[in-house]
Design a protein around this nucleic acid. Structure first.
Lengths: 226, 226
DNA sequence: ATTTTTTATTGATATATATCAATTTTTTTT
DNA sequence: AAAAAAAATTGATATATATCAATAAAAAAT
């Protein structure tokens, strides 16, 4: 759904990326962007489709994941200020991942050509993009390490800490994803997610009521994670 | 060991990154680079050390890996033209990985400030750097998928294909790494590397003689990988 | 409000993979 | 060349984790 979008110049939700743009550059982006709303469960990016746009999330959460025949792997849960599609900059024609809204989402879509053009003229913006790519690399390496070196308890502890510290910014939250999604985040069987959540609940590390989770013993969770 | 290094302008080993530099830019790099030789097993980059240089490999192979208490995870075997340290550009102060020579290596070391400076003045170079970062992201995602979704046979098949197609460019090669390293590449136990290599040998998929490996049935290897 | 469908939960079992221990081979050092 | 150290190999066993099957609970559709 296309929104009546506000002018980028006055937008309150701008990423730090856009902070140092000149009024002309902002206006150029404004002319070449569309704001779109997605309902929960709608697909935003489909893996292997042509990559011609960069997405900038203004509101809501998305899951970014790799699709395969048997099983998905969720790379990241992204929220406000997350940029999607930078990995296709100057490089690959296709998106290498899928993105689906796990809440109602509002985002701005900007043509990749415009982004490229502004990177040429604005060095601050260029640096921000590179910074963004490097953060992505760090996050994926972290995930690679987590999945390859930690056991189930540690992986799930990591995921819970991430939801608390980075996604909901609250030790008490209502999980926006299913047990199956938690399994795709931590690369384990759904049944084991259920079992380990229960185990954490029994050990009074978390307080569990369906999708409502409260982290009670953060220290213990951190210990499990390492 | 510091070498008497040749002028970048005449260097035959330049990466495509440097292709479109002006003579002035090349000369600037030349003035601010050192060429160094490392012997097999020498450490080139130590994880968590200050990142102030970019490395460009001219000769030899390195292993790039994440260190941890119990176990290493080899991210990539890099060879000629591989750039190291770009992930620290404008971003993190520290190297997030270690790099060790697995053959005698010759590389050029360039101060990160110079790289940053040339990125500002040369748009082609800037794009090459971004391209390089995106390739890194793709590779790590691929590895993440491989380690999380494939069984031992598939993971080892992947590694062998990589050695053949990308590292040695030959279906017959002398492995420069130990069984333990193969285990750290594929995230499995060393004993299982040995067992599965033998299994492949018995099934006439490869011909195995210590470190000498010949891929006989490439098609079957590809099948195992998927 | 009732039915249908999807998701979550639980226990029992199977299986892939790691670990352990012992031996052999290869490499390095003396 | 001999001795010592490191790496590779092999088989037996343990264990973490997935799979299967059955039920319960929650959500969606009628």
């Amino acid at each position: 759904m296309v929104n009546k979008s506000i002018d980028c110049v006055f937008c309150e939700n701008k990423s730090v990326c856009f902070n140092e743009l000149t009024p002309q550059e902002l206006s150029e982006i404004n002319k070449n962007k569309v704001e779109i709303s997605y309902k929960k469960d709608e697909t935003i990016i489909k893996q292997n489709s042509f990559a011609s746009n960069i997405f900038f999330i203004k509101k809501g959460l998305v899951k970014i994941y790799l699709e395969s025949k048997d099983r998905d792997l969720i790379i990241e849960i992204g929220g406000k200020s997350k940029m999607l599609g930078l990995t296709s900059l100057n490089h690959t024609k296709y998106y290498k991942f899928s993105v689906v809204a796990i809440e109602d989402v509002v985002l701005c879509q900007i043509n990749i050509e415009i982004i490229n053009k502004i990177m040429l003229t604005n060095q601050y913006f260029n640096n921000q993009v590179i910074s963004n790519l490097n953060t992505t690399i760090e996050k994926i390496l972290n995930k690679l390490f987590c999945i390859s070196h930690k056991q189930l308890q540690g992986r799930l502890a990591d995921a819970l800490i991430c939801f608390s510290d980075e996604i909901y910014n609250n030790n008490k939250f209502t999980l926006g994803v299913s047990r199956k999604d938690l399994a795709d985040i931590t690369n384990m069987a759904t049944e084991n997610v259920v079992r380990i959540l229960k185990e954490f609940n029994d050990k009074k590390i978390i307080k569990l009521a369906g999708k409502n989770i409260e982290i009670i013993n953060y220290v213990e969770l951190k210990k499990l994670s390492s």
